[in-house]
């Protein structure tokens, strides 16, 4: 009820053009997002329920879905931890070459993903610079799920750094000084004062990195080796199905991915809303 009232109140904003702006937003979102997405659902609907169930529960499909979501989750978690560290270092310390490192963070955004994939494969293959060092230790990275996780970590890094960085910059140093003067240790200060303040941003970065990793194709296909049941990601399986003119089968996987992604992102958003709500005054 209060949500409804808040929305009605927005109409009385001092800025004109609410109707036009909202109309344009809805039209735009429909054209760009909703119509293509609903097309996937319609295409899938043509195959009927039993055929759909058969297509998406095939062992090869389930294995690829498990791999895609599992590797994405691990990659986003790694990015959450190390992205926070990178953001922390970039905000809190002054050192030579800081601007350069700051620019470096965006590179995974700008680099064509195929280039990243080829570079990573060359590095981690058994005759590559890093791969040849890891191989004697019994660790095979290229053409395994580990390699996929490495590629997904690479492309997801900027999301966490760029969402946490501005929040960390705006965090007043006085808060930490106040905590210290009240007797808190460095660890307590971080856990009780700094972390809660940056948690919503960290969660956003995590969600973005995770969403990006789920849909990633270009950088993964080179390093994955694409062995069915072992290192074949769901987006690749969709392409494979399309190449075999199994369009309904391809969209069926796409629909499953969409539903899972939506559910996960919705859950993350809910968590974020819950954690941000406590610091806001009007809710």
């Amino acid at each position: 009820m209060s949500i409804l009232r808040r929305h009605l109140l927005t109409r009385h904003s001092v800025l004109p053009g609410f109707g036009l702006a909202l109309g344009y937003t809805l039209l735009y979102l429909s054209l760009i997002v909703l119509i293509p997405l609903s097309a996937t659902f319609f295409k899938t609907a043509t195959m009927g329920w039993p055929a759909f169930w058969h297509a998406v529960t095939a062992p090869r499909v389930l294995a690829s879905l498990r791999l895609t979501f599992g590797a994405s989750l691990i990659a986003a978690t790694i990015n959450g931890i190390f992205g926070l560290l990178v953001a922390w270092v970039l905000v809190r310390y002054q050192f030579f070459g800081k601007k350069l490192i700051d620019a470096l963070v965006d590179l995974p955004f700008a680099l064509p993903t195929a280039v990243a994939g080829i570079a990573l494969t060359a590095l981690y293959a058994s005759n590559g610079l890093i791969g040849s060092q890891l191989e004697p230790l019994g660790l095979k990275v290229a053409f395994t799920p580990i390699g996929i996780t490495v590629a997904l970590t690479f492309i997801g890094l900027p999301f966490v750094v760029r969402t946490v960085q501005p929040v960390l910059e705006e965090l007043e140093a006085e808060l930490e000084e106040a905590a210290a003067s009240l007797g808190a240790s460095r660890l307590q200060t971080f856990r009780r004062v700094v972390f809660p303040a940056i948690a919503p941003a960290l969660l956003t970065g995590f969600a973005l990195a995770f969403a990006r990793a789920i849909g990633e194709y270009g950088s993964v296909v080179f390093i994955a080796g694409n062995m069915p049941m072992v290192s074949e990601i769901a987006p690749l399986l969709i392409i494979t199905k399309l190449e075999q003119y199994d369009e309904a089968g391809a969209t069926a996987i796409a629909v499953v991915m969409l539903v899972i992604s939506f559910a996960l992102l919705f859950a993350i958003n809910a968590l974020q809303w819950w954690s941000a709500r406590r610091t806001r005054e009007d809710l």
Partner: peptide, 27 residues
């Protein structure tokens, strides 16, 4: 020492009660 800042430096994600209790809870 008790230190009071010009811009208060209250912990925004904590209630007034939790803010005041902070120094006791971190012991």
């Amino acid at each position: 020492v008790g230190f009071v800042f010009q811009h208060y430096a209250l912990f925004k994600h904590m209630t007034v009660l939790e803010n005041i209790a902070f120094g006791l809870r971190v012991r």
